[in-house]
């Protein structure tokens, strides 16, 4: 090179990139996905594929033809949105609904705000809630887990652990079933162990910090513990709350979404506590059996406020 390059310091870079982080999240999602594929079979596979492909496609089309910018689908964020959206859906949902959800997630919740990093709400959750409000029946008729089934739309449906709790008098599943995921529910939320494996992977790779998931889980455990302690007949045990519904999936993968969560540990903890409290309130006192997605979306709205008033620990106060 005939000309020397001049630039301000620092002259080296750590080599971290958006792609690396996104790839890490995708890898961390794999165990939970595999469990979903195992228990819900072909239906889960179809929903996941449709969701991922349509998310990527919508992002590409919007950037190419509407925004007229360089498409950034290679960074992997659309893939993650697709995966998370699918994991929050029942495996017997018609695929056109999935496409609609993907369109809302990418088109409205993500790209209309300026794409990756600028969206105030988690796109996958926004898509999910959009579907939940639009198609309440399809979104709450959960297939019963039957390993490696080939049924899709015709899957046998049953209740989730949480909806059992809310009204019906069926037996509550055993803790071991909850751990491995042998229960009804969205296709990615069922197995606590698989999600925890992903959580540990994310922590080891330093893709997320522990603050948000742990503060959510601790808050939920404490709050439900107090309720359970005061009236065991009316309120379920903390263990049950932790392992059921989308709590773990939400705490580990959705609440920790970079763009929509606070920017420093103190804020993250406040944010986590908020999600925990709202989740329990919706579950125990609200009309819906499940509250994680609403809780996260509500706290997403508070993130800018938290960022403004909660500052990181400064050097020397």
């Amino acid at each position: 090179m005939d000309k020397l390059i001049i630039s301000p310091a620092p002259h080296i870079h750590g080599g971290d990139s958006i792609e690396k982080n996104m790839r890490g999240v995708i890898i961390a999602l794999i165990p939970a996905l595999l469990v979903g594929f195992y228990f819900f079979g072909l239906g889960a596979l179809i929903v996941t594929l449709v969701s991922v492909i349509s998310c990527v496609l919508f992002e590409y089309l919007i950037q190419r033809f509407l925004l007229k910018t360089e498409p950034t689908i290679t960074d992997g964020s659309a893939v993650i949105t697709g995966l998370l959206l699918a994991m929050n859906l029942p495996s017997n949902i018609p695929f056109w609904m999935v496409i609609l959800g993907a369109l809302f997630a990418i088109g409205v919740a993500k790209m209309s705000f300026g794409g990756l990093g600028n969206n105030p709400f988690n796109p996958a959750l926004a898509g999910r809630v959009f579907l939940l409000i639009s198609f309440p029946v399809a979104m709450t008729s959960w297939p019963v887990p039957s390993p490696l089934t080939t049924s899709y739309l015709d899957a046998q449906t049953g209740a989730t652990a949480l909806s059992i709790l809310q009204g019906s008098d069926l037996d509550i599943p055993a803790i071991t079933d909850l751990l491995i995921g042998k229960m009804g529910g969205s296709l990615g939320e069922i197995s606590a162990i698989a999600i925890l494996i992903g959580f540990i992977y994310l922590l080891v790779k330093k893709i997320i910090s522990w603050h948000i998931p742990i503060s959510i889980l601790v808050t939920v455990a404490l709050f439900t513990g107090i309720l359970h302690g005061s009236n065991p007949a009316a309120f379920a045990s903390p263990m049950f709350h932790l392992l059921t519904g989308g709590l773990l999936l939400g705490a580990v993968f959705m609440a920790t979404d970079y763009a929509t969560s606070p920017m420093n540990p103190r804020g993250m903890i406040i944010y986590g506590i908020g999600i925990g409290i709202i989740t329990v309130v919706i579950r125990e006192f609200g009309a819906y059996p499940e509250g994680v997605s609403f809780a996260i979306l509500i706290m997403n709205a508070f993130t800018p406020l938290i960022n403004k008033y909660v500052k990181p620990r400064r050097f020397s106060k």
Binding site: S7, H11, L116, F315
Partner: peptide, 28 residues
């Protein structure tokens, strides 16, 4: 190694806040 890579959108990952030894918010 001399040239910088092209910069992209801030994804608000908060890693700059985590590493700042003075507890500042570089992104902000």
């Amino acid at each position: 190694e001399a040239l910088r890579k092209k910069d992209k959108n801030c994804i608000r990952c908060a890693k700059c806040v985590t590493v700042c030894p003075m507890g500042l918010e570089p992104y902000l």
